[in-house]
Design a protein around this nucleic acid. Structure first.
Length: 314
DNA sequence: CTTCTCACCTGCGCGC
DNA sequence: TGCGCGCAGGTGAGAA
């Protein structure tokens, strides 16, 4: 369940069960679920057992659970989680039967809630867990949402802050857009420019801002970029409030429940159906091994290559 | 340097 | 029923 709202639903769901809980057992069934982890599955199990979770944090689509105790070398660490395309973090009763596509099970003991199982299940195995070092943020601000520490996992340090992060720098985002000679949709999906946006919310935000996905990023007027950023925030916040987007049982919260934002989609997956704004057909085009969905009438290409330099400053 | 393609996987729904 | 094909919410190594 991969974009920002879905990952945030998972983070918020894990927090009450995990913070303050001690790991009493780890079973890593599948080494593919540890592709981001430097050691072996056995080493992961041994290193995590006995540790205590001190919080939950998220930046973009990266989620991490800081550990109370430092590493033997004295460095702060966290369990880093990336859900990939199909990962799930599920909370289950201790000893619950194996989930479909279960890859890793972490048995925990919480002072208030007793024994529980945290299960990482993942059909396509693009997601993974890792024990990763926490390093200081360059700006000294909190590393992500949900936790105050100015630390971020090494593996997530190259990712930009997400648009719902209070420390997100709008002016920096605008400056970086002006330097990009790519289509705006490609830039929205570039996690080093702005994190948390994936294929669904990119299409939704571009539809809401009435911007063609192939518009040249550096050709957008400042007011257009500001409108886009506002729509990105609006669609992410609304999707979060509705529990995320679920098309099937794949994308669920920690209790296995689907979100209902799929009912609020205006463009994504709606090709051949009328645009909710103008009534003309939404189209689908192929885009980097995936699809873009947009309204060709509401979303025109304005920023034509070769003309953008003259009109970029507003 | 920047930009872009492709591999990494499993499973589902569709047309034949 | 079965089979092949296209498609799916992401990422990052390596090529251009």
């Amino acid at each position: 369940m991969p974009e920002l709202p879905e990952v945030e639903v998972v983070r918020a769901g894990l927090a009450p069960a995990v913070v303050g809980a001690r790991v009493v057992g780890v079973e890593a069934h599948d080494a593919r679920a540890l592709t981001r982890h430097a050691g072996t599955p056995a080493e992961f199990e041994a290193r995590l057992t006995g540790r205590t979770f001190g919080g939950t944090a998220r930046r973009g689509k990266f989620l991490w659970l800081p550990l109370d105790e430092a590493s033997p070398a004295g460095a702060p660490e966290a369990v880093m989680v990336h859900l990939g395309m199909s990962g799930q973090m599920l909370l289950r009763a201790a000893g619950a039967p194996p989930e479909r596509h279960e890859r890793i099970r972490i048995a925990i003991e919480h002072p208030d809630h007793g024994e529980l199982a945290v299960v990482f299940a993942d059909q396509r195995t693009f997601g993974s867990l890792a024990i990763d070092a926490l390093i200081p943020t360059p700006d000294g601000r909190a590393g992500g949402s949900g936790h105050d520490a100015p630390l971020v996992p090494q593996q997530a340090a190259h990712i930009a802050r997400d648009p719902l992060d209070p420390a997100f720098d709008d002016a920096l985002f605008r400056r970086r857009l002006v330097m990009k000679s790519s289509a705006i949709k490609r830039v929205l999906l570039d996690q080093t420019v702005v994190s948390g946006i994936g294929n669904i919310y990119a299409d939704e935000a571009l539809w809401a801002a009435r911007i063609h996905p192939e518009s040249l990023a550096r050709g957008l007027a400042t007011r257009t970029v500001n409108r886009l950023l506002a729509e990105v925030r609006a669609v992410l916040a609304k999707a979060l409030a509705e529990g995320g987007t679920s098309f099937d049982a794949q994308y669920v919260n920690v209790n296995g429940e689907a979100g209902y934002f799929a009912h609020s989609l205006n463009a994504y997956g709606r090709h051949g159906k009328p645009c909710p704004r103008c009534g003309r057909m939404i189209v689908r085009t192929s885009f980097t091994n995936r699809s873009s969905h947009f309204c060709p009438f509401c979303q025109r290409v304005r920023a034509v290559q070769g003309r953008e330099a003259a009109s970029a400053d507003h």
